[in-house]
Design a protein around this nucleic acid. Structure first.
Lengths: 224, 224
DNA sequence: CGGGCCGTTGACTCTTGTCAATCGCGGTGG
DNA sequence: CCACCGCGATTGACAAGAGTCAACGGCCCG
């Protein structure tokens, strides 16, 4: 086995703008440069040249695809620690936007071959990220193709709670985002949550932006 | 850049059986061993130890996940040349079965780190396969979450025709498989095909196992 | 010739989507 | 400080796309 002593991933201090006036935090941290994006600000768009990939530091990021008539599918929400924006080809295959403000680290994309050829911690992390994306995508296909609205909501809440490590979920995203992630309409999301609330399985405080899971067992039962 | 002169992926001649009486073609081709599976025979199951991954030589393979009550989602059909069964963890995250007979090559899975650490053609091919799976999964999520039944069918037919490189599609899979892939019921698949037939957009010969795309432009119009 | 499997078709149901009104919080400006 | 405005969320009434259940048809194979 070879011994690569240094990761040779180029720092990405010389970031070109993305057409949006984001405040950039230019201190180059280790291998990438930190950037701050405002609520709903675009990080990259479908079809953009994939010069960088990213790791979420804080906040949340959504990656999505659009149909020609505007229907949207959010394939994933990325939380702190998650890596997104890795591509096989030269272009990004989906767009990424900050959900209510996010800080990310941008890594210059070296050739994927190069990356795959190294054996440092970081390359392992990237390959792992890819595989976890794939796994998540596969689970999500099962959800989208075969689960009912209520099952989708239950899965979503349990997953988010597990990822955040807390039974009280501060939702970073709007109902519209949730709907576009689960393949539902905003009305169906709202009605499902109301129903769960009435059964005392969850509690939704007045500002409606956080959800407390009171009865996880019941949620697991609802989740097929 | 290092120069790995040999791919060090272990041949997989010493295959343990998978609990099913498949005829095995034991000649070890290059890096893996060829295996033949009968119609609907299981190649591996969800939860099996992921000791191998596979490349389709001929025929077709479906990979799928099940819900506790039997609802099924086929995440992909794998055609000749496609690689499937690569996993991040120790277990297969979905099951794989031959669709009406398939020949595959099994590769012993070395540690993914090792694999990622090499720079040979084959490792590149594997990483590429992963990224293509991911891309396909993302497109499929858009389909499952946001397309109508007719749009799903149109997308499916165009995709299959493109992959097979032919406007006449010999369907390797049943209506049930198609339904479980597109998140529909067998009845809806059947009705959609009949409707396309009536509009002279496709032709479906009497045995119903092949489909001729007469009017691809119309299909593209139906596909959002 | 008969049985079974796969696919098609029809009638009906129902979950989810659509359209529209209202609520309520938060921010803004007088 | 308070009234107003606007956006996001909720709720209701209704529509419709897709699912369910059931019958039937045709093909293959014994």
């Amino acid at each position: 086995m070879q011994t690569a002593t240094h990761l040779q991933i180029a720092p990405a201090e010389t970031l070109r703008g993305y057409g949006s006036p984001a405040k950039r935090a230019p201190e180059a941290v280790a291998l990438g440069s930190t950037q701050v994006f405002a609520k709903d600000e675009e990080i990259f768009a479908e079809g953009d040249r994939a010069g960088f990939f990213y790791k979420v530091v804080c906040g949340a990021v959504r990656t999505s695809k659009l149909l020609s008539d505007g229907r949207r599918q959010i394939d994933a929400f990325h939380l702190p620690g998650d890596i997104f924006g890795i591509e096989a080809g030269e272009e990004h295959r989906f767009s990424a936007e900050a959900v209510g403000g996010a800080t990310v680290i941008a890594y210059r994309r070296c050739s994927l071959d190069d990356l795959a050829a190294r054996d440092g911690t970081f390359s392992r992390q990237v390959v792992d990220a890819m595989l976890r994306s794939l796994e998540r995508a596969q689970n999500h296909m099962l959800l989208l193709g075969r689960k009912t609205a209520m099952e989708k909501i239950a899965t979503f809440l349990l997953d988010l709670s597990a990822r955040l490590g807390d039974d009280t979920i501060e939702l970073p995203m709007s109902r519209t985002d949730i709907a576009d992630h689960l393949g539902l309409t905003i009305e169906t999301v709202s009605r499902s949550l109301t129903q769960l609330e009435r059964k005392h399985i969850i509690e939704v405080p007045a500002h409606r932006r956080s959800i407390v899971l009171c009865d996880k067992a019941a949620l697991h039962r609802l989740d097929a």
